[in-house]
Design a binder for these strands. Structure first.
Length: 904
RNA sequence: GGGGAUUUAGCUCAGUUGGCUAGAGCGUACGAUUCACAUUCGUAAGGUCACAGGUUCAAGCCCUGUAAUCCCCACCA
């Protein structure tokens, strides 16, 4: 016996993964590059009946990080899909990736530098890039091992790293095209800037948090009259950058002051009073100071009124362009000083506490400073418009559906995209600035791919490299294109991707940009469907976080319960787009299913072994005389066929299990088509456990049909394989009659069965359940052993005595022969009794009364429905008939139970 | 301010086009036990489908309103 009594995942998983990988089964069958084997000069892939392809990319995990629970979910989802399609015969390509994780890795590395007592400013960009490269290379590998541990059937030879040459190449090609198309521009704008990391961010990377703050009222005195304006601000230190104060043009209080000058406190500067809609008469005093260089709204006001932009805060968060007293102070110190000085001059007229939202760095939590900087921007209007057009044409199907509208809404309001980052770890921006003022005819900036050079020469003019790198999302937006080897010449049968699976939280940052970029570069949407998963929350529905200490590590669970258990557990009870709780319990349930399946296989193998031994002795030990030739085998129809494997008719569980397995297969197929993973798993779980093990295998302990046992086990193993790849493969390798890998076998065809026989077994199940229920509700314990089962005039019971006896464990089943005794079961269509003595029946009286009442209530409800003429006239005929039948059934049941009660 | 969701058993969730007595897992209670599996088997209890109206022969599902929870976007001088 090869099978241990329980499934130990640790003993099998890594060997199995190794065998899969070594045999190359994760590679797609249809090549990714043109092939011309017949030498006719044409791409064979296009000539042949194109095999169906399935392609999906892995959202690249951080190359030097570890997987978290979200990755665990992503891989469970993506790999289940991939394996399912592989079994269905599609040329399936699951493309793995690794992310240089620009900013994240940089933050980690910069901390490392600090530990060593260095700062980034001691090195130039190329040095830093090389240092980080080495750092990442040294840390790399864990992630990829963890992806393997989760069972991802991805094609490792095709792993794409976000800094691979082909990626950089593609990004430069796009950038050049955009530059030539006028979609890229350099602009001085206010950008969100982290003074700690000294880099700018895109809007999307900013984290807004509500915080308590103080609103100070400051007096600005008018120059030509003894009057003053009170302005309110949360940032008094920025007053040095004020270049105007604004009032609403409709505000009667201040109309006469528009155009006058006020003196900027603590300075000698005079600034004008301007009229602008931005000033809200309802808010505070209705007067607002305008600091174009340090506030987003003020920046726009400044544009409208042509105001100067006076930058008073440096990139490292210190005061500049101010009088000596304040120069060099940190913004926080400067604020204190300004408040103190204003108070002394009696210009501070009030303060109050408010709650307002403040922008923070999503990595270090530092308050972001709006900073005036020259950056590269993408003009997104056209790109977004094209994306919206294709989305509205329903070219991409979303799961959940509503996310499409959310995305369209986002694209409609999208602002230009800042793609410059002031960190060295990333793809260098391929732009060079003219370094020769005398060359007036030459453009200020030129595109050039030679970013390894700090300066280049073109046409006798010297140009200097821009030191910035790309926003990670700029390159990531190319992911479907670079992963599938699409280019302008090579037709890739894998582009567009069949499905893009990723977190709902990066719908805007990533999915939106992939769509825009895909359309811009290839003219096609980059994927046909989008499946978005939500956050995995802890068991109480709270976000997992290090500070809360509720983080679950997927690899720990894999180690403890096995990869399959983790996958089954994390898929269960989860639907698209929803943030849902997760607990170890669901993984334990998955572990139990794996073990159940293992033991099912162990039982079947032992039956197969025994039969083979018996055959070799020449006596059909398990093929009793009852056996008749019966047609059941694979095939598409329900109709019995005469040429198939034979098996015994007496055990009607055989037809029944075929019916149930067929319906399970149909359900799973439907669920996979509609991305309802949890439902697919649930269906399989119930079919394998509740139906196959608890009813069919129990029945097979009486009549063994080895051929069918083999066939049905294979079917269930294959159907579960996408979700639980390891245990199904381990069993496949352990049972004696299968060949090759289950991972590359074919999705099962439907089984043939006789519907009448199947329905008969369903009736037997109902009888058995009723017997069990009644036995449990009788007084005393061990009732099953005490009472015999009696029946009258019932061929179903008569023909299946042994089966019913085994399933109910009653000591005997006898034909009454017309003289009823004992306790009659509450079954409408069968006359079945438990041979229970009078004394016990009397004790059962109460339960019987309750049962009669319950059936009576059901009957009343049905009658009420039938009495309503609107129902009988307007409801579909089959429903009305069903109701009528039910009434008849309930009535007869009640009268029988009442008879029983009368006897007592 | 704008938008998106969620609310069904003690907990976590299904319930697809309105149509049988609203389901599952976990948990709970009771019972079983050599003979594949205690990671087991059997049975049961447990529901005002958030609330209030409406449409319909029929509503967990559709419509209107209310409440609570969560998320996103914008703004907050």
């Amino acid at each position: 016996m090869k099978f241990a009594s329980s499934y130990e995942p640790g003993e099998y998983e890594s060997d199995i993964y190794g065998a899969w990988e070594a045999s190359g089964i994760f590679k797609p069958q249809v090549p990714t590059y043109p092939v011309d084997n017949d030498g006719d000069g044409k791409d064979d892939r296009l000539e042949s009946k194109t095999a169906k392809t399935f392609s999906i990319v892995m959202p690249p995990p951080n190359a030097n990080g570890n997987l978290h629970i979200g990755h665990g979910l992503t891989i469970a989802l993506e790999d289940s899909l991939t394996r399912y399609h592989r079994l269905r015969g599609d040329s399936s390509w699951y493309i793995p990736g690794a992310d240089h994780a620009g900013f994240e890795t940089w933050v980690v590395y910069e901390r490392e530098l600090e530990k060593q007592g260095h700062t980034r400013f001691e090195y130039d960009r190329d040095d830093l890039y090389n240092k980080v490269w080495d750092f990442v290379a040294a840390q790399r590998g864990n992630m990829e091992l963890q992806v393997r541990a989760l069972g991802a059937s991805c094609s490792w030879d095709d792993l794409t790293f976000t800094l691979d040459e082909n990626v950089i190449d593609r990004v430069y090609t796009t950038f050049e095209k955009m530059w030539n198309d006028g979609l890229i521009y350099r602009g001085e704008k206010l950008v969100n800037y982290c003074p700690k990391h000294q880099t700018a961010f895109a809007d999307i990377e900013v984290e807004h948090k509500d915080e308590k703050g103080t609103l100070w009222d400051i007096e600005y005195k008018l120059v030509d009259r003894p009057a003053s304006l009170i302005v309110s601000t949360t940032r008094p230190e920025t007053l040095f950058g004020d270049t105007a104060v604004a009032v609403n043009p409709e505000d009667e209080r201040y109309k006469s002051l528009i155009g006058k000058m006020v003196k900027l406190p603590l300075t000698d500067r005079l600034i004008p009073v301007i009229a602008d809609e931005h000033a809200d008469p309802e808010y505070g005093t209705g007067v607002v100071k305008i600091t174009p260089a340090h506030d987003f709204d003020d920046f726009e006001v400044g544009e409208r009124h042509n105001l100067d932009r006076v930058q008073v805060i440096s990139e490292d968060g210190h005061m500049v362009n101010v009088s000596e007293k304040y120069f060099g102070l940190s913004t926080a110190d400067c604020r204190k000083q300004v408040l103190k000085d204003l108070k002394e001059k009696d210009l501070l007229k009030g303060e109050k506490q408010i709650v307002h939202s403040v922008a923070h760095c999503y990595k270090c939590g530092t308050v972001l400073e709006p900073m005036l900087k020259e950056q590269w921007f993408v003009d997104v209007k056209k790109l977004a418009a094209v994306a919206i057009e294709h989305l509205e044409d329903n070219e991409i199907k979303f799961h959940p559906e509503n996310k499409k509208l959310v995305l369209i809404d986002y694209l409609k309001n999208l602002k230009d995209w800042n793609i410059s980052r002031q960190i060295p770890w990333g793809i260098a921006i391929p732009m060079f600035r003219k370094d020769d003022a005398s060359a007036t005819d030459e453009p200020d900036w030129i595109f050039d791919r030679r970013t390894n050079l700090k300066e280049i020469e073109k046409g006798g003019v010297k140009y200097v490299r821009d030191e910035d790198t790309f926003d990670t999302w700029f390159s990531s937006s190319h992911w479907p294109i670079v992963c599938t080897d699409w280019d302008e010449e090579n037709y890739s049968p894998y582009y567009p991707l069949n499905v893009m699976e990723t977190g709902a939280d990066i719908l805007f940052a990533w999915v939106a940009r992939m769509i825009m970029m895909g359309l811009y570069i290839t003219g096609k949407v980059p994927f046909r469907e989008v499946y978005l998963h939500g956050l995995v929350l802890d068991e109480h529905g709270k976000k997992m976080s290090k500070s809360k200490g509720n983080v679950i590590n997927p690899i720990d669970l894999v180690t403890k319960y096995g990869s399959d258990a983790f996958r089954l557990g994390i898929l269960r009870g989860r639907s698209a787009g929803m943030n849902q709780a997760f607990s170890e319990n669901s993984v334990i349930a998955g572990r139990n299913l794996a073990n159940k399946l293992w033991n099912i296989s162990r039982l079947i193998q032992s039956i197969v072994d025994e039969e083979e031994t018996a055959d070799s002795r020449g006596s059909g030990a398990w093929q009793g005389e009852d056996e008749r030739a019966r047609p059941v085998a694979t095939g598409a129809s329900d109709a019995p066929r005469e040429d198939a494997i034979s098996f015994s008719t007496d055990n009607m569980g055989e037809d029944w299990i075929c019916r149930e397995i067929n319906s399970c297969l149909e359900q799973v197929e439907q669920d996979m088509k509609t991305y309802r993973f949890a439902e697919a798993v649930e269906t399989l779980y119930q079919t394998i456990w509740d139906k196959y093990a608890d009813w069919f295998l129990e029945s097979q302990k009486i009549f063994k049909n080895t051929a069918l046992l083999k066939k049905t086990l294979e079917t269930l193993l294959i159907a579960l394989h996408p979700f639980a790849p390891f245990v199904t493969e381990a069993i496949w390798q352990n049972i004696s009659w299968t060949e090759g890998f289950i991972a590359t076998t074919n999705w099962p065809e439907k089984l043939q069965y006789d519907p009448i026989s199947a329905e008969n077994f369903e009736n037997i199940r109902i009888i058995v359940s009723e017997v069990r229920t009644t036995l449990q509700s009788l007084p005393g314990t061990n009732n099953a052993k005490k009472y015999e089962l009696l029946y009258d005039n019932d061929s179903l019971v008569a023909e299946n005595e042994l089966l019913i006896k085994t399933l109910t464990r009653v000591p005997a089943i006898n034909n009454l022969g017309g003289s009823p005794r004992g306790l009659r079961l509450a079954l409408a269509n069968h006359e079945i009794y438990l041979d229970v003595p009078e004394s016990v029946i009397k004790e059962y009286r109460e339960a019987l009364t309750e049962k009669i009442l319950a059936v009576g209530r059901e009957l009343d409800a049905l009658n009420l429905r039938m009495e309503n003429p609107n129902y009988t006239e307007r409801a579909p005929a089959h429903l009305v008939k069903e109701t009528q039948d039910k009434i008849t059934e309930k009535q007869s049941l009640i009268s029988r139970l009442k008879q029983q009660l009368d006897i007592i």
